[in-house]
């Protein structure tokens, strides 16, 4: 029972991290039909930049802000320079470009910071909270993860739901041509969408780094787990990304907790295969989903 509770709690924190990356994937996918395979590597880069900033002796929070700000800039720049030219090409071209970017960024980070494992600090204690007399596998830092992801998701959700800018962004994503006829500058909004998605990624980057080995490839598995989460959620629903992230986090936590950590990636693969076989449109797809 104790193991079950601890594994569940771990799965929730982990799952929200997947959700954050998945949210970025979904924001981009529903606007451009592109999966950004570089989403994890971009987060890795912004986290390494924060790591360098930390090395200068400034505190955690300025470095945290730097990471998110760099995410915003990097996301926008990637869209403008690399993605825009392939937007109207076959979808494969975009896959190859974003995958190439993934490798390129990892190579560059390796050349600057080395491929050895570093350690990235956490702003709060990573020791388990004590409930009653027993200590549970949920730390202050895990609380921070939960709060940070939910706040960011809430902000992005509110932007889309309640602001005119968000309404325009939704229109640009759903019906680019109709949006242009309503005076919406679709191109700019796509850039903004990539920038926001990269902020969600950058947040995940700094949240994962303290709890795992920190090297240029540390986001690789997180990316594919987030992909699994996004597919589970239907690939075009932000709420689906959150729920998909939680489900994926929990499933992988149970696999890891009861069958051994080495089986987590295999568990994700099985989960993805099962989802695609049973409910290929995901749990939260819009009614106009893209069935074959």
């Amino acid at each position: 029972m104790r193991l079950f509770v601890n594994v569940t709690l771990g799965g929730i924190a982990e799952g929200l991290i997947f959700a954050s990356v998945a949210l970025g994937l979904v924001l981009i996918f529903r606007a451009t039909n592109i999966i950004n395979f570089a989403q994890g590597a971009m987060a890795m880069l912004t986290t390494f930049i924060a790591f360098s900033v930390l090395g200068r002796g400034v505190g955690y929070w300025p470095a945290f802000v730097v990471a998110l700000a760099c995410g915003l800039l990097l996301g926008g720049a990637v869209q403008l320079v690399l993605v825009r030219p392939v937007e109207n090409k076959p979808p494969l071209n975009a896959v190859i470009v974003t995958f190439g970017l993934l490798i390129l960024l990892e190579g560059i980070a390796g050349a600057i910071w080395g491929n050895t494992n570093r350690s990235f600090p956490a702003p709060f204690s990573e020791r388990g909270l004590v409930v009653g007399k027993t200590s549970i596998a949920f730390s202050h830092f895990d609380v921070f993860i939960v709060v940070a992801v939910l706040v960011l998701a809430g902000l992005i959700g509110a932007l889309f739901r309640f602001s005119t800018l968000g309404l325009r962004m939704r229109a640009a994503a759903f019906a680019p041509e109709a949006a242009r006829l309503l005076g919406i500058r679709v191109g700019r909004l796509l850039t903004l969408g990539w920038a926001l998605a990269a902020v969600a990624g950058a947040l995940a980057g700094v949240l994962v780094a303290p709890t795992s080995v920190f090297s240029p490839s540390y986001m690789d598995l997180i990316l594919v787990y987030a992909f699994t989460a996004a597919v589970l959620g239907g690939l075009d629903s932000p709420v689906g990304a959150l729920v998909g992230g939680l489900v994926t986090g929990l499933v992988l936590a149970y696999v890891g907790g009861y069958l051994g950590g080495a089986l987590e990636p295999i568990g994700a693969l099985v989960l993805l295969i099962v989802v695609l076989m049973i409910r290929p449109e995901g749990l939260f797809a819009r009614p106009t989903a893209r069935r074959v």
Binding site: T164, L167, R168, R170, A171, F174, A175, E177, A178, A179, L182, G183, I184, R286, T288
Partner: peptide
């Protein structure tokens, strides 16, 4: 017509007016 089916009627009209 290409109304944006994912949005509500009011949101569609909002968009029509928003640029002005």
């Amino acid at each position: 017509g290409s109304v944006i089916t994912e949005l509500t009627v009011e949101e569609n009209l909002e968009l029509g007016a928003a640029w002005r």
